[in-house]
Design a protein around this nucleic acid. Structure first.
Length: 467
RNA sequence: GGCUGGAUGGCAGAGUGGUCAUGCAGCGGACUGCAACUCCGUUAACGCCGGUUCGAUUCCGACUCCAGCCUCCA
């Protein structure tokens, strides 16, 4: 790949794009907040997973050795509540939804992270970090066995989400029977009763609070100081703010160099959420739309922008992908010599170097497609090389990896029998040979009824699904 | 109310101080038995008001509107 990669990334922390400067030359360590597994992944999760999948794919394409850690939070109040409602073990619940998440990931062509730590497998590290925080006088035990982080003891608190401590105090809810010294303090460890899910600790039986697991797992997997920390923008406060407080209070130095936050997924211009009833799980969506079309939709906008989920936008995504795949159709790229460092590749890298501008990168893919179409007939060798490049660049975005015919002829929206289609096409070919245009058109009408479009060319007739 | 981000052609969505985004849709042409695909050409935009400038959609300021976070959330 190109040498001297200079990649700019928007750092939420500094509110500006910064040149990525690895702590260790040639190597990037990245931690992304994954999913709390108490239900099926929704499309907002899918967006996050795809966004950081592209980040990692691109960094690798640019020659970095990447260690990608994405955690699973498998112990949490929501999990325990859901398990109780279902009358099942919390570990059975999380096992089921972790499997489901992996299936969804695979469907969306999301590469697995290098390390996928689970909170329940890092309880001892969590306890060790809490002990350290108590020792450093950043945390205290409450009378009931809870342990809280003392926000006042960490003056930089609020620097990521730009909140000042006074405002937080004014806005904090004070609950009855409050065990905290200060309403802004948050739980590191929650005491549990016998019979509830928990682990033994120096403060008695209990379980970790919500934020500490990410501090413990990231530190354990990547060290106390690493390159990139990512997650959804809705995690900025309080989750990431608390992570910074915990991690930096424990280690005494900087936590992550760059903070990346992906934008929200909206439905009808509102954030997708259960309370609004506009909630889509990944698997529901994949019943009605091809996974690659969904992925294209997620990748066609910049990762920090909101994406509006709608049937209309999915249709447009399908049309765009059809154009790209049409360019690849009938081209054999096997054994083709790779075009390296040409203008298209440079333009693509320039776009992606600028804070992973996938929308600008996709423009280059369309430029490539047009060039391929121009050359298809008179310069097939050049067309093949360009097609190989198109597929290679598509891979960085996680698209265009299927055989073109497979994409163009298969679709979850139209379940057709290829043999039947082929037989109709043959009959139509005969009718055309006989110049029986009426019959040829009647057959095409029948195909249209089946959502099939026929395309005639000097080499014969091909077909595709009308999405 | 505080903090962030946004407002681009019919739709989606990038970007730039003065010459093309791109895709879909539209229009004209080529190709086609007719189509489709494809190619060539083409229409069309930068919320509002000021300022800086020879020139602003792009920089600065005010305003309006929208979204997210401030409580569990990717």
């Amino acid at each position: 790949m190109l040498k001297n990669a200079e990649i700019k990334i928007y750092n939420t922390f500094t509110q500006r794009k910064e040149v990525l400067q690895p702590i260790e030359p040639g190597r990037i360590r990245i931690y992304v907040c994954g999913i709390t597994t108490y239900d099926y992944s929704h499309l907002g999760h899918g967006r996050m997973l795809v966004a950081f999948d592209v980040v990692v794919r691109y960094l690798r394409a640019r020659g970095f050795e990447v260690t990608y850690v994405r955690n699973i939070t498998d112990i949490d109040d929501k999990i325990l509540n859901r398990a109780r409602e279902n009358g099942e073990l919390f570990s059975d619940l999380t096992a089921r939804f972790i499997d489901a998440m992996h299936e969804d990931e695979q469907a969306l062509a999301i590469l697995p992270p290098d390390i996928e730590p689970r909170a329940t497998e890092h309880i001892s590290e969590i306890i060790a970090m809490i002990e350290k925080l108590i020792e450093n006088e950043n945390a205290y035990r409450a009378g009931n066995g809870d342990v809280y982080f003392e926000v006042e003891s960490f003056p930089a608190y609020g620097k990521l989400s730009r909140k000042n401590l006074e405002d937080l105090l004014a806005g904090a809810r004070v609950e009855v029977g409050e065990l905290k010294r200060d309403p802004r303090d948050f739980a590191l460890w929650k005491a549990a009763a016998d019979g509830e899910v928990g682990w033994d600790s120096p403060w008695g039986y209990g379980r970790p609070g919500w934020h500490i697991e990410c501090s413990a797992m990231s530190t354990n997997c990547l060290g106390e100081h690493f390159d990139i920390h990512g997650g959804g923008s809705d995690l900025m406060f309080p989750h990431h703010e608390n992570e910074i407080a915990q991690s930096e209070a424990a280690s005494g130095h900087k936590f992550a160099n760059i903070w990346m936050h992906n934008g929200p997924l909206r439905v009808d211009d509102e954030k997708m959420s259960k309370s609004l009833g506009n909630f889509f799980t990944v698997r529901e969506v994949l019943k009605n739309y091809d996974a690659e079309v969904v992925r294209y939709l997620l990748v066609a906008s910049h990762y920090r922008s909101p994406i509006n989920y709608s049937e209309h936008n999915l249709k447009q995504a399908a049309a765009s992908l059809e154009r790209l795949y049409s360019a690849l159709k009938d081209i054999d790229t096997s054994g083709v010599k790779s075009l390296v460092n040409g203008r298209f590749e440079k333009a693509f890298y320039a776009a992606m170097d600028d804070d992973f501008n996938t929308a600008e990168g996709i423009k280059v893919l369309f430029d490539l497609a047009r060039e391929i179409n121009r050359r298809k007939s008179d310069d097939p060798e050049q067309a093949s090389q360009l097609a190989e490049l198109l597929v290679r660049l598509g891979d960085i975005l996680g698209i265009l990896q299927a055989p073109p015919e497979q994409f163009l002829q298969g679709s979850v929206q139209a379940d057709v029998d290829p043999e039947y289609i082929e037989s109709l096409i043959k009959q139509r070919q005969q009718a055309r040979a006989d110049k029986d245009w009426g019959r040829a058109d009647a057959i095409r009408d029948e195909l249209t009824r089946l959502n099939v479009v026929v395309e005639d060319s000097p080499e014969g007739s091909t077909w595709r699904i009308e999405r």
